[in-house]
Design a protein around this nucleic acid. Sequence first.
RNA 1: GCCGAAGUGGCGGAACAGGCAGACGCGCACGACUCAAAAUCGUGUUCCCUUUGGGAGUGUGGGUUCGAUUCCCACCUUCGGCACCA
Length: 821
Amino acid sequence: MSENYNHATIENKWQRKWEADKLYQAKIDPQRKKLYFLTMLPYTSGDLHFGHWYPMAPSDARARYLRMCGYNVMFPIGFDAFGLPGENAAIQRGIHPKKWTYANIKNMRRQLRSMGAMWDWSREAISSDPEYYRWTQWFFEKLYEHGLAYRKKAPVDWCPQCNTTLAREQVWGEDRHCERCKTPVIKKDLEQWFFRITNYADELLDFSTIDWPEKVMTMQTNWIKRSEGASVIFKTEQGDPMEVFTTRPDTLWGATFMVLAPEHPLVAKVTTTDRKVEVEAYVSEAVRKTEIEREAVDKEKTGIFTGGYAINPVNHERIPIWIADYVVMTYGTGAIMGVPAHDQRDFEFARKYGLEVRVVIQPEDIPPLDGVTMPNAVPAYGTMVNSGPLTGTPGDQAFQAAVKFIEEKGIGEFAVNYRLRDWLISRQRYWGAPIPMINCEVCGWKPVPEDQLPVELPEDVEWKPTGESPLKLHPTWKYTTCPECGGAAERETDTMDTFMCSSWYHLRYLSPQYAEGPFDPKEYDYWMPVDVYTGGVEHANMHLIYTRFFHKACRDMGIVKGPEPMLQLRNQGVILGEDGEKMSKSRGNVVAPDLLVDQYGADALRTHLMFAFRWSDGGPWNDENIQGVVRWLNRIWALFTDSSTLLPSAQKKASLGVLCDLRRKVHQTLKQVSHDFENFEFNTIISGLMELLNEMYVARESGAVGTPEWQEAQDIYLRMLAPVAPHIAEELWTERLRKPYSVHTQPWPKVDKEAVAEEQVTLVIQVNGKVRDRITVSVNIREDEAKAVALASETVQRFIQGKQPRNVVYVPGRLVNIVVE
RNA sequence: GCCGAAGUGGCGGAACAGGCAGACGCGCACGACUCAAAAUCGUGUUCCCUUUGGGAGUGUGGGUUCGAUUCCCACCUUCGGCACCA
C-alpha cells in the first residue's frame, strides 16, 4: 500500500539539507564550462503576490536542467531596494523607507526560499546597502570623469504625484503619464544630471552579437529611432541662423513657410511688434496646454504668424515664420521647414492658414500634381520639379543630389537624428543613492573623493515628498567642504534613479563582499557575460536599454569587457488575477504565495506555473486548474512508493513488446523534454512527463515492475522530474530508490537513439486528402508495398468506387494519399 | 495613423520542418468503491446529421498544393509598443 505524499515535511527537510550542504553555491571551476543564469532581480515593494513566482520558478527549472547537463551554473538572487515605489509605500504607512524595505526583504527572502530554487544566497546583493551603493556612486563618478555624466538646465518631465523628475523612458502613453503612479507629467525647467546614452545610440541599435527576442529589439530600435536626413541652416531676415532637421532635403524648394516650437528661443526675436501680443498669448496658451490639458488630444493643428520672415537658403526666397504646437522642442531642433505639398502635417497647416502649397516632387506613376487642388500631401519620392538647378533629378537620386547641393553651398549637411534622449537620473526624493557630487562656489561641481565613498544616506530625514529633495531639508547633511579648495561647499541633494542601481547588479552578484572594487576581476573573467537572462518585457525600453548602455560605457572606460552584458534574453508573460486583470491590492485580486505554498506545496506550484500557461504568454490565475498537477504529483508518489512496484511481479511477466514500448516512451519523452528545456517550452515538459507516467502505469499493469527496463524508467523519470519538482524528486531518488544523494548533482540522461526508433508505424490512408483508413505497417515498408496495402483497404475501395487513381502520394512513415478524378 | 504579436472545444493549451486537428490537463457527464460525501479509479466529452456511417470544422474571404492550424494575399478582432518625430 502507498502512503500519502506530505509536501510540507518533504520540502522543508530538503530545503534545509541543500542549504546546509551548500549544494547550490557556485564556485569558479576552470575545468567546467560556466553558465551565468540571471533572472531580473525582484523589487522590494510590499505588494508581493504569486505573479512574482512566474518568471522565477521556470527559470530555476531551466537552470537546474543546464546544471545537470554539465554546466557550472551560477544562479544568483538579490533585491532592487531603492526607489520611488518603496518610498511611496513607506510614506503611506508612515514607516521609515529603510525599515519598510528591509522588513520586506526579510519576508521576501523567506517566501523566495520556500520555492526551493537553486539560488546561491551567498551571492545576495541589496542595492540599498551602503556597501552596494558605494559602487553605484563610484560608477557615477567614473561616468562623470569620462564626460558621460553632465549637469544641464533643461525642460524635464516632472511627476506632480511622485514629486520628482523622471527619465523620458519613465513617461508612458498618449497622455504622458508617470510609469509608476500613472499621473500625467508636467514640464519643468530644472538643472539636472544626465548620462550621455545618446553617444551610444548607434551601437545600441546593433544586436548582432546577442540572442534577444525580436520584440525587444524592435522596441529598442523604435525607441532610439534613428533617422537620416539633412541639417539645413535657414536665416531669419535679421540674420540669425535657424537650423532645421529634415529627412527630405529633396523637398527644400517646396518650403513655403517655417514653423518654430512655441518654446523655441528665437520666437521672441522674430516676432514683430504688431504681432507680439497675439504671439505671447499663443505661447502661454501652448505652455498651459502642455501642462494642464495633456489628455485633450486635439489633433487639429493650431498656430500663429510671428510677423517675421526667413530666407530659404536654396532659392533665397522670403518665407513667413509661424509658431505651432505641432512642432515640439524636444525633437530635432524645434524648428521645421514647412513643405505642405509633400508632408501631410504641413499640408493641413497650410490649408488651414491659407499658405502656399508648392509641388516640387512629381512621382512617375501619378497624374501631374497641382498645389491648388490637391486634396492631400504626396510624400512619395519622385522627380524633382520647380527645384532650380536640381529640377529633373529622378526620385532615386533626389536625396543624395540635394545633400550634395547644400553641402557644396555650405548651407547644410547630411545629418542623423535620434529620438533617444540623454538619460535624466536626478530624483528629488529620499530613498536612493545620493549623487556623490559637491558644489563649491569657487571650484564648481567636484566629485566626492573616492576614499570618502559611500556618501551615506542619513536616516534622520523628513522624507515626506515636498517637491524639494528631502536631503536639502536636513539641517546639516548637505554642508561639507570642497575637495579641491577646502572651502565651504554643498552636496548634491538629489538621489539617483534606481535604474542606475539595477544597471550593474549582475556585476555585484559576482562578488557581493568585495571591497576593492565593484566586483572581483577574477570572478568577472570566469562568469561574465550573463549567458541567460529572463524577465519581463516591460523593461525593454528602461532597464534593458540602460544596462546595455552602462556596459558599453564601462567597456570604453576599461572596467568591463565585451560588447554586451547579456547574451540571451527571454521574456515571460504576466500572471493576472482570476478576473483577468493585473494583480494589485486595490483590485483585490492578489493571489498570496504563502497560502498557496501551505496548501499545495512548492513543487505543485512550480509545476503548475510551468504547465498551465505558455511561459511567454502568461494568463489569468485559476484556483481550479492546479488540481491537475496536484493529482499528477500524487500519482508519481503512489507509483514510486507503492511496495508492489519495488518487487518483480510474481503473477505477471511483461512481454518483450511491453518492455520495448516502455523504453521507447521513456527515451522519446527524454528527447522531447530536453528539446523543450532548451526552448523555454515548459508546458510541454510537464505534459510529456504526465504522458510517460500514464504509460508507466500501463506497463506496471502488464508486469513490467522489477525488470531492468522498469528500473531505467524510474531512474530517468526522477532525473527529468528533478528540475521541475526538486523536492519530491529528491525524496524519491534518495530515500525511496536509495540512489546516491543528490538527484540534483546527477548528470542528465542520454537519449538512446535506437530505443526511440519505432518498428511499426501507422500509415494514414487518405482519399482525395481525407482520412479514410489507418494501417499499421513496418517502418521499413517499401513505397510500392505501402501503396499496394493502401489500395487494398476495403474502406479505400469503397471510396474509390472502382475509379483509376490519378495519383498516389506516399510520405514515408506518415501517409498514402490516393487521388481520384 | 505607424510598427509588432496573436486568434484552435466550455476553459488552459498541444500539433518538431506543409501530412491523423484537439496531445496533456481543468471542467462536465455517467459508472465503480462508500450508509453517504470527499478522495481515488474507470468510461465518455469539437459541432451537426436519428444510427451503422457520414458531413463540417483551427477569426473571415480568397489563393498555392495531392494535402494548409502551418505558406501567400486581403480583411476583421484582441493585445503590446510608438505617436503631430519633421
